[in-house]
């Protein structure tokens, strides 16, 4: 999964000479949290986040008189004065997994995607990654999740996939959980069908156990 498919291509950017007030307004207007700072040639020179902007601007609890003194200085404050210049970036050949792991590691919410000349191609934010994984799960199409318990030995997944394929059912995705219980693995195929009775019987006939998925999340159910 390459980030090219999931990134936002219409990037809202700002010029380093622009005022901080303008940056604040852009962030609010587009409901975003970071603005790549781009020079005249379209090359990335920094990034400014809503946190940078908030730290730079006076607190809203100040009185009118106190604010009055600061007004002039705030008006003169420019994006280049508060931006981060050490920007962590990605290239279009990075994957969605790269972006996910990197964001977890460095605690940022969005990464600009640039080419070799540092020209900005897009930006990938947490919500783009979430959308990418929702597509991978296949949950944008109607379907049913099966929960199958199998022995933890080679070839079990193939048997499950073969059985489902024989029934001419299409897959949205298959998740695998290891260490479900000792010597077992749990498979969670998301199937694009409403008709699950036949395939459930078939899988049980092959010796698999269909489990209640709730056991994955919660303590055993209280007695009814």
């Amino acid at each position: 999964m390459f980030i090219q498919r999931s990134m936002t291509r219409k990037v809202i950017t700002i010029h380093p000479e622009a005022g901080v007030i303008e940056a604040r307004d852009l962030l609010q207007q587009h409901k975003i949290h970071s603005l790549p700072v781009v020079g005249l040639e379209g090359t990335l020179i920094g990034i400014v986040t809503d946190r940078d902007v908030r730290s730079a601007l006076p607190a809203t609890i100040l009185s009118e008189a106190e604010l009055g003194q600061l007004k002039e200085r705030v008006a003169q404050l420019k994006v280049k004065d508060i931006m981060t210049t050490q920007v962590v970036t990605l290239s279009p050949n990075n994957t969605l997994e790269d972006a996910l792991l990197l964001m977890q590691q460095i605690h940022v919410g969005a990464l600009p995607v640039i080419d070799r000349d540092r020209k900005i191609l897009g930006i990938i934010a947490f919500r783009d990654i979430l959308r990418g994984f929702a597509e991978v799960l296949g949950i944008d199409e109607p379907g049913t999740l099966l929960c199958i318990l199998a022995d933890d030995r080679q070839g079990q997944m193939k048997r499950i996939v073969d059985a489902i394929t024989e029934e001419k059912i299409r897959f949205g995705s298959v998740l695998v959980a290891r260490g479900w219980e000792k010597g077992k693995r749990a498979f969670f195929p998301y199937l694009f069908t409403h008709n699950i009775v036949g395939i459930k019987k078939k899988l049980e006939g092959l010796g698999f156990t269909l489990i209640n998925p709730i056991e994955m999340y919660l303590e055993p159910l209280p007695p009814a």
Binding site: I139, P142, G143, L145, T193
Partner: peptide, 8 residues
């Protein structure tokens, strides 16, 4: 809907 058809 995580578990049952149609997922909405």
């Amino acid at each position: 809907p995580t578990f049952a058809y149609p997922g909405t």
